[in-house]
């Protein structure tokens, strides 16, 4: 059973739809106790890091995600959820959950590129069950103004380039994090979620 963390950061309808489409066994909850009992966790989110961390603190959901991650059970962070598992975000100077070492930085305004990085971009991944049956350089849908700078190369699962190369996906043991939105990335995105459901 997959528990999808609802911490009021954006809308969970698209994650809900994609998991339903894949016939995933899941529930969406804001109850830390219930979420800690599930076998796998999806930690989604769009929006702003500081407010999200405030909610995670006040509801105890942040502690639940940390505890779940340290239990060794599979966790998948998506977009803001992927950023928040790192140590710190430049977005309103926000200390995050510190599950994977690294920082979240803002795309520099002087790169001559539009921010947010909004749209489809290709990724290059290293061999992991998460990317099974997904061709290299497949396109995924991104929408973010801040990017993950993983501290250790070993935690980089996929890279993407937007002015600079950045961590498109991260891995640490059973903890996975995707900056892109698999639930909005067409067939490769659905395949990735299917892999998370079936192979972890």
């Amino acid at each position: 059973m997959i528990g999808v963390v609802d911490y009021k950061a954006g809308n969970l309808k698209s994650v809900d739809s994609a998991l339903s489409h894949l016939h995933g066994d899941f529930f969406i909850s804001d109850d830390p106790e219930k979420l800690l009992k599930c076998d796998k966790m999806i930690f989604p989110g769009v929006g702003e890091a500081y407010s999200a961390m405030e909610v995670l603190r006040s509801t105890g959901l942040g502690e639940a995600v940390k505890e779940f991650a340290s239990s060794g059970k599979p966790l998948l962070g998506i977009c803001l959820g992927a950023q928040i598992v790192f140590d710190h975000s430049e977005e309103r100077d926000t200390p995050c959950l510190g599950i994977i070492p690294g920082k979240v930085k803002r795309f520099a305004p002087d790169m001559g590129l539009k921010v947010p990085h909004m749209g489809w971009n290709t990724i290059e991944y290293r061999e992991l069950p998460l990317f099974k049956d997904i061709p290299q350089n497949s396109s995924f849908y991104f929408v973010h103004s801040y990017y993950i700078a993983s501290e250790n190369d070993e935690n980089v699962a996929a890279i993407c380039e937007y002015g600079i190369p950045f961590t498109a996906a991260a891995v640490k043991d059973n903890i996975l994090a995707c900056q892109f939105h698999p639930e909005k990335s067409g067939e490769p995105g659905l395949q990735l979620l299917k892999n998370f459901i079936e192979l972890y």
Binding site: N11, K13, S14, S17, A18, S20, H21, Y141, V143, H181, E183, K184, S185, G186, E187, G189, L190
Partner: peptide
Amino acid sequence: AEQIFIPFSVGGGISTLDDIKDVILAG
């Protein structure tokens, strides 16, 4: 939202925060 796994937006007649919320929560 239940069948199409790419992003989409909705416009037309959106004039309040409640209108925005209705559309976003619908997916």
